[in-house]
Design a protein around this nucleic acid. Structure first.
Length: 820
RNA sequence: GCCCGGGUGGUGGAAUGGCAGACACAAGGGACUUAAAAUCCCUUGGGGAGAAAUCCCCGUGCGGGUUCGACCCCCGCCCCGGGCACCA
């Protein structure tokens, strides 16, 4: 017994998916091959981590948008590269292995098969001959190869660094895998407590590229908010280092400040509790208090230290520093509002012009000296952090803040008391993990010295293991693979693995030449596909703003310096799709039970309807809720399209509609087709899929209203619909044309003159209120319109008998009569 | 606290400074049907006048401004979402 559906999508969709695969129609031509003479377009999705939960409707939103663009460009005669792959290394598969003993490779394969099935059921036009998997040795061989390039350039180094360690998971976690909770830092996965532990780690010197990562953001067509997040993360600040001699000791304290113009207002100096000079400089009298303070603050979590921002704490160390600019002796304090990890770990405090210093000075009754006058007077009980004019500042008096900064830095440099200094918040990238399921480092150790493997020895694959648990001391699981780690010559393999981000740092380059066994990519393939500023369109979630998108830009710049890629940036245009919320307006989550499973939706409504609905919901970048009623609206629309062509018999057969005709379309329909084509074309190019679909609905409503339906008009409609609902479009095309694939046909064109209506209606306003309308030719000039309006029989009625002083005419838009 | 977004009917959302609410959803009414579903047609921002066609007033978070004309531009607030947050 067959359940009745609005149109036979469950029969149509798998059949066309099979036809497309057999015809190989989405294969992108490599440079030199037939088809590569066409202009290229590289349309990329952020490839997914194949989780056990399967795809969710949020993934599909971005993938549908890129598929529409890809199909559109293909129909416009471009050689389109639209690939898909799997970012498949990662913790969940490894945790699953720890719990069940199943090798992560098997879990990963199963998940990939499921993801591929779900993606293919959507009818996406990926070039599957380019599918890549970051856990495939044929792929990660080149991830290791690129690491060796970084190593050769001295951009990879080993350092002892404090990292987040989770005793329950038995592994370290990246900063991004740690959440701040009211109970302290916890792991994102499993919500277990984590702690700081110093461990020897591999680092990548991303800081060497800080300035270029910042500057080159200007080359990119990315959302401004995302660029801003990267700018903040890089955190450039310009200022000066100033040396303060410590009175009665040979030592000096170097501070970093962005406001050297306020140096005359410094009334004390603060060291962070971790500052190396604290034990040396603390006087005997203060030793006990300072030691206690340091101990207390080291036991505080980062969260506690920042949460208590309002009540500042600190202890004087008993020493005085000499302000180089005026010789004044000012006290030295230790306080945990100064961070050891930024600047020099020491600051000069100017309470009159810095909030934190002001609060501290208030708490401990330290002097507050005003050295900047702002443009407006402000209450004496607050501090002024803006820019203004210097006072009480010796040679800086009457200078503006900008002038004073320059003058002070010049003075400090001449007197050798300081120097101009640029700082970044960006830290080097902690690149090693104590995990099994990741890329092994192509590194061996001889005693304390590390050495690279030769590129011929790649790929270095993972050993087979029974036990994926790391040791309680934080030794990586690979340390247990004794026969693997020990080389015949006595050298020992590195047992850390690379983080999940490694594979995604360059996958877009591998897609250019995915089956190359001699190199990660050929120069010809890279030049061809990455021309014109790199990937033409990259779509994915905003959660990667300062992770993947920063890491990949960093690697790309290193590769650019090595002349392995031809442009300094990988992704020219980037769009973030918004989150799709549950029907209850809450974030989709298993525990809330509001998750929409695409498999269920496809079974009930079909892939085309799901594609159309996801695009019709609203602007791509916006967060929006799922609606099962809206989903029904989408299939209703497609069923209307279907019924333009077919009609259902009493027995449930679909037969050609008797309303179809071979006659040419009437003028009104020709205009409707032209207008819709113009609208859909521009909307697709600007990713406004919701209004493109709305234009298609208007056209379908028009065609439905016709007594006889010209086949040529419906074929035209099918072409416009093809990027959105490709299966249905193919089926209609076949039924009306008898042969060929719409996916390989041309994007429709129109005559510009058909965009213009024969007669237009122009609203007539009187004092900006619409009072009437006139019909006239769209070509009518301002002068002609004015004559028509002034001689209109109803004009004095519209104007209420008042005298018309002036008429404003915007042809094609509006007429506004101004009356006094 | 700072930096980005955003605020339009019952709902999702449309509107190069030019008729606010396209297109959908929901709701109501009608046609078809023994009935229901499906489908098709009509109404639908709020208020008011009229027998009716129609007509009038109000309306895009709040308050000002620019303009012949403002959802759109400018200034000052309020609220929501996201990011950063003792970075000197």
């Amino acid at each position: 017994m067959q359940t009745r559906t609005p149109y036979p999508f469950s029969e149509i969709e798998p059949r066309w998916q099979k036809k497309w695969a057999e015809a190989n129609c989405f294969r992108a031509a490599q440079p030199g091959e037939a088809g590569s003479e066409k202009p290229k377009k590289y349309i990329l999705d952020m490839f997914p981590y194949p989780s056990g939960a399967g795809l969710h409707v949020g993934h599909l939103e971005g993938y549908t948008a890129t598929d529409i663009i890809s199909r559109y460009w293909r129909m416009c005669g471009k050689n389109v590269l639209h690939p898909m792959g799997w970012d498949a290394f990662g913790l969940p598969a490894e945790q699953h292995a720890v719990q069940t003993g199943t090798h992560p490779r098997l879990t990963t394969k199963k998940n990939i098969d499921n993801f591929r099935r779900q993606i293919q059921a959507m009818g996406f036009s990926y070039d599957w001959s380019r599918e890549i998997d970051t856990t495939d040795p044929a792929y990660f061989r080149w991830t290791q190869w690129i690491f060796l390039k970084l190593y050769e350039k001295n951009l990879a180094y080993v350092a002892e660094a404090p990292v987040w360690y989770c005793p329950i998971l038995g592994t370290v976690l990246a900063n991004e895998e740690v959440l701040n909770t009211p109970e302290g830092p916890h792991s994102e996965r499993g919500n277990h407590p984590v702690e700081r532990r110093p461990m020897r780690q591999w680092m990548l010197k991303i800081t060497a590229y800080a300035e270029r990562l910042l500057q080159d953001l200007d080359l990119l067509d990315w959302p401004e908010s995302l660029k801003e997040m990267q700018r903040n993360w890089i955190g450039k600040s310009e200022g000066a280092e100033v040396d303060f001699q410590v009175d009665g000791s040979g030592h000096r304290i170097t501070v970093y400040t962005t406001r050297p113009d306020t140096l005359f207002g410094a009334s004390y100096v603060v060291l962070s509790p971790e500052h190396p000079l604290v034990p040396t400089l603390t006087t005997h009298e203060q030793k006990i208090a300072v030691e206690k303070y340091r101990k207390d603050s080291s036991s505080k979590s980062d969260l506690e230290r920042t949460e208590l921002a309002k009540t500042k704490t600190g202890v004087p160390i008993g020493r005085f520093a000499v302000n180089p600019v005026n010789g004044e002796k000012i006290p030295v304090w230790v306080a945990d509002y100064v961070l050891a990890s930024y600047g020099t770990g020491a600051v000069m405090a100017v309470p009159a012009h810095d909030e934190r210093d002001f609060e501290f000075a208030k708490t401990f009754d330290l002097p507050i000296r005003v050295v900047i006058h702002g443009p407006d007077s402000h209450p004496a009980e607050s501090c002024f952090t803006g820019e203004g004019v210097n006072v009480n500042s010796g040679f800086l008096d009457k200078k503006t803040s900008a002038e004073a900064k320059v003058a002070m830095i010049e003075w400090l440099e001449n007197q050798k008391f300081g120097r101009r200094q640029i700082r970044y918040k960006l830290r080097d990238w902690l690149f090693s993990r104590q995990r099994y399921w990741g890329e092994p480092f192509p590194i061996v150790w001889q005693g304390e010295k590390h050495q690279p493997l030769s590129p011929q020895d790649l790929p270095l694959t993972l050993p087979e293991m029974q036990d994926y648990q790391p040791s309680p001391t934080g030794e990586p699981p690979l340390a247990k693979a004794v026969s693997w780690i020990k080389l015949a010559d006595g050298r020992i393999r590195e047992t850390n693995t690379m983080p999940q981000w490694a594979g995604s740092c360059w996958y877009y380059l591998r897609f250019c030449d995915p089956n190359n066994s001699q190199a990660p990519w050929s120069p010809e393939a890279e030049k061809y596909w990455m021309s014109n500023g790199g990937v033409d369109l990259y779509v994915g979630g905003a959660e990667h703003a300062v992770l993947h998108l920063l890491y990949a830009r960093f690697w790309h710049k290193v590769l650019f310096d090595l002349k392995l890629v031809s442009h300094p940036e990988p992704f020219r245009r980037l769009v973030n799709q918004g989150i799709i919320l549950g029907e209850d307006n809450r974030k989709m989550s298993k525990s809330v039970g509001n998750v929409v499973n695409p498999d269920d939706v496809i079974a009930q409504y079909g892939a085309d309807a799901l594609r159309v609905f996801e695009m019709f919901m609203g602007p791509l970048e916006q967060m929006k809720p799922w609606s099962s009623k809206g989903m029904e609206g989408a299939i209703r629309f497609l069923a209307r399209v279907w019924r333009l062509v077919c009609e259902e018999t009493e027995s449930g057969e679909w037969i050609p509609s008797p309303a179809l005709t071979d006659d040419p379309a009437d003028q009104e329909t020709v205009r409707a087709l032209a207008k819709t084509t113009a609208k859909v074309t521009s909307d697709i190019e600007s990713l406004q899929m919701n209004t493109a679909i709305s234009a298609l609905m208007i056209l379908v409503n028009h065609l439905t209203g016709l007594n006889s339906r010209p086949k040529s008009a419906i074929i035209h409609l099918a072409r416009l619909l093809a990027p959105f609902a490709p299966h249905l479009a193919e089926e209609i095309y076949l039924r009306l044309k008898g042969k060929g694939l719409i996916s390989l046909s041309d994007w429709p064109t129109y005559r510009p003159e058909d965009l213009v209506d024969a007669v237009v209606e122009l609203p007539i306003q009187v004092n900006s209120k619409v009072r009437g309308k006139i019909q006239l030719s769209p070509q009518a000039s301002k002068e002609e319109i004015e004559v028509i309006v002034r001689n209109h029989p109803e004009l004095s009625a519209w104007a209420g008998g008042k005298k018309i002083d002036k008429i404003i005419i915007v042809p094609g838009r509006i007429v506004n009569c101004i009356c006094s």
